[in-house]
């Protein structure tokens, strides 16, 4: 339970950064932190106490194994996050070139 709460706290750190920071790079970092929290959350669901890796071996006695599926999902999700981060950084570079500032409050020619 403590692990889950700490994982949730990590997620909240990301949300906090996303909502309050004005620097483009800090916003991207907050999104990355949020992504780590979600991945950790998935891994925690698969975790069992005293369980071994999920591979059947001949000379190892049968015991409880961790769930391998979330681990596979997390690998995919990490790759997706890498893509998101790369795209966001690329966009941030162009934004800085065009607006000459990192401050998100000064980047507002569009009004929504």
């Amino acid at each position: 339970m403590t692990l889950y709460l700490m994982c949730f706290a990590l997620f909240l750190v990301g949300v906090y950064g996303l909502l309050t920071k004005r620097d483009l790079i800090k916003i991207i970092l907050s999104l990355a932190i949020m992504g780590y929290a979600v991945n950790l959350f998935l891994i925690l669901f698969a975790y069992k106490k005293d369980a071994i890796f999920p591979i059947l071996l001949k000379n190892v006695a049968q015991s409880s194994m961790v769930d391998p599926l979330p681990q596979a999902l997390v690998l995919t999700s990490i790759v997706i996050e890498l893509g998101t981060t790369a795209l966001l950084v690329a966009l941030a570079i162009r934004l800085v070139q065009k607006y000459k500032t990192f401050d998100i409050t000064k980047i507002r020619r569009l009004f929504g």
Binding site: M34, L88, I107, R109
Partner: peptide
């Protein structure tokens, strides 16, 4: 153009949040 990057950045941040 500058506006397009701004819109795309906003969209990408929202998209990443929704995916999480």
């Amino acid at each position: 153009h500058a506006e397009e990057y701004e819109a795309a950045f906003k969209y990408a941040v929202m998209g990443a949040l929704s995916s999480a």
